[in-house]
Design a binder for these strands. Sequence first.
DNA 1: CGCATACGTTACCGATCGGTAACAAGCGCT
DNA 2: AGCGCTTGTTACCGATCGGTAACGTATGCG
Lengths: 220, 220
Amino acid sequence: MSEAKNSGAAACTEGGMRVRDRIFRTARELFYRQGIRAVGVDAIACEAGTNKMSFYRSFPSKDELVAECLRVQVSEAFERWDASIAAYDGDARRQIEAVFESMLSKSCGDDACGCPLSNAAVELRENTHPGHQVIREYKAEVRRRFRAMAAEAGASDPEALGDALMLLLEGSAVTRLTFAGQNGPLANTLAAVRTLLDAYLPASKRPAAKRAKAAKIASA
Amino acid sequence: MSEAKNSGAAACTEGGMRVRDRIFRTARELFYRQGIRAVGVDAIACEAGTNKMSFYRSFPSKDELVAECLRVQVSEAFERWDASIAAYDGDARRQIEAVFESMLSKSCGDDACGCPLSNAAVELRENTHPGHQVIREYKAEVRRRFRAMAAEAGASDPEALGDALMLLLEGSAVTRLTFAGQNGPLANTLAAVRTLLDAYLPASKRPAAKRAKAAKIASA
DNA sequence: CGCATACGTTACCGATCGGTAACAAGCGCT
DNA sequence: AGCGCTTGTTACCGATCGGTAACGTATGCG
């Protein structure tokens, strides 16, 4: 018991999992809640109910564990992304809103700490870190998807709309770290999204009872 | 010479300043470029051309230095803010654009690393850190200003517009850490700002020959 | 001159960092 | 029973972390 103390509160010490999985889940959680650089290998192993030696039997280094955490978070994020748009196939505008609803509830909820990839981008500044590439690819793919959806929705300037949506999502995630509760700027993220959609999308793609002016045009 | 090596590249070793000032400037720069947790007291002192002992003669602790760096960055940010809007007194819409131009050139330029306050919010997660309060007050004031400008500009929903602008600015700053050059989403920040302004502001406040597209939608 | 302030230098403190060697105990499996 | 795989345990490594004590030196100022 010479290592850090095991709080046991949010640990993953259930017997079902192998040590590697417990370490991995614990690390993900601690990195996300407290920050990557703030969490040491001792703390991870201890919180996972094991010790540092078992850590290094499962992972070659802390940096590599970080990179793998980020990789899993990337694939999970895109799973959520795909799941959120599945119900609205063919309605790209609704899909964009659904993506925001899904991502916001995941990254900006009451017990969330923003986007783990964006946070990692702030913490890992040296380009040599193995997680750096993961972050860049993720953000590039998010951008590509937003632009593609904007184009499919018939945006007048799909690149501009896609980038604007991405900036809004990134801003929402990082804002979560400063503003708690639902009284912060996050309460207006979806309104901003819809305003941008209204501005960039043709009136024909606008939802019916949104704006009196737009509705009048559509029905005429 | 048992401490970290002095690269001398970006150091502030000129003789004019007192030690405390050199340490302070060096720390600001290193914190901003490499991250707060990534920079140790030894590195700061050495890069400033002095040693750790002189550091602790000038500052009570590293955390307190961090907080003071953040405080100075807050006041400088608002100085820039005020200076950027001074030329457009009475034209709140133009003032909003000017604020974005100023903040983007400062936080998202080629040699910039985003917003130091937002980055600090990611790195300093424990609420006990003396910098935490500084960050929260800064972000709250930014939000207040954006909402006030939106109201002064005659926005139909000044709270929503102000928050949307803030989210865009935050998103732009954090995006700078992942996308270099001018090919990233940052190229479309100002377009998004103008689109939001067009959507929330009455047509009478719109600049004359701005967008044929927006005009067409509004008039139709 | 003498004194105080500011600064450099060296050595040190306990704690933690990421990472490793060696050995023992438990386990399922055949 | 015996084997192999996984895990726990202890001790250790060099490096760095934030922070401090004691002493030496330089400068300025009365």
